[in-house]
């Protein structure tokens, strides 16, 4: 396999030095893959995404992106920071936090302008990304006039406009209506087909085979306990029960084999 573009080695992180979120996590992200982080609420997948985006920094262990170590100090360097921020984009779970500008157009312009892109090019790109996500008519709206699904589209537009190589999604389909969920699933497939690397955290297993070709499973004590293709993971009912992704009353998945023990 090709060289990893993002790599965590033995990463541990605890909020306020008291509440552990990651325990000695090692993982790699390869160019062009679709990687799903699976786990129950509070298992550490969001925190891992924030590590991968250089928003929180491991208290022990190391994180390397595109061959360079990413630390609080290394991101102080403007060139390093700009390079990293433009290559990795993050769609937050909470669109309200991500969409912070007074209008949709300004929101989408924020990233490119921060990256030093010219005004004309920014404006052209905004129109293109709005058209691509089918939200051109929202351009001059204020965020409080948007529905949850529209806000999610704006948040995605504000990241896509920077054309990052790696896209991180935190619970992308959470709290969305079925049609928007389906649209987003399709979008992730399209982006992947266009060569983007996708990493997303989810506990929605229904469409896993479409939006992932590799999965990492987090246990509730913040460790990675399994790795495999969606079919592998979905077949291990005991594992899914153990990490609190399904419960005893869950129906078997359509994609899973009836035999709980897979041959991997």
């Amino acid at each position: 396999m090709n060289e990893p573009i993002l790599e965590c080695i033995d990463v541990s992180y605890a909020y306020l030095d008291k509440f552990p979120a990651l325990e000695r996590v090692s993982m790699q992200v390869h160019a062009g893959e679709k990687l799903a982080l699976l786990g129950a609420n509070g298992s550490g997948k969001s925190t891992l995404l924030k590590v991968l985006d250089g928003l929180v920094f491991p208290q022990s262990g190391s994180f390397t992106a595109f061959g360079e170590p990413v630390t609080e100090e290394s991101l102080e360097d403007e060139q390093m920071s700009q390079g990293f921020r433009s290559r990795v984009g993050f769609v937050f779970q909470n669109s309200d936090a991500q969409v912070f500008s007074p209008s949709v157009r300004e929101e989408i312009a924020f990233g490119p302008l921060q990256m030093g892109m010219g005004r004309d090019e920014t404006l052209t790109r905004i129109d293109e990304v709005l058209a691509m996500l089918d939200i051109a008519e929202l351009a001059d709206r204020a965020p409080f006039q948007l529905s949850g699904g529209q806000k999610k589209r704006v948040a995605i537009a504000s990241v896509l406009v920077m054309n990052p190589e790696v896209l991180l999604f935190d619970e992308p389909t959470a709290a969305l209506d079925p049609r928007t969920q389906e649209w987003l699933t399709g979008l992730i497939e399209d982006l992947s087909a266009a060569g983007k690397t996708i990493v997303h955290a989810t506990h929605d297993l229904d469409v896993l085979d479409r939006i992932a070709d590799r999965c990492l499973v987090f246990s509730e004590d913040h460790r990675i306990v399994a790795e495999g293709t969606p079919a592998d993971i979905m077949g291990q009912r005991d594992l899914l029960l153990d990490v609190n992704l399904i419960h005893h009353h869950s129906r078997p998945f359509g994609t899973a084999t009836t035999d709980p023990v897979t041959t991997a």
Partner: peptide, 11 residues
């Protein structure tokens, strides 16, 4: 409390 907050953030 913030404890919960921190916890939920990880999820």
């Amino acid at each position: 409390a913030h404890a919960d907050d921190a916890g939920s953030r990880t999820g």
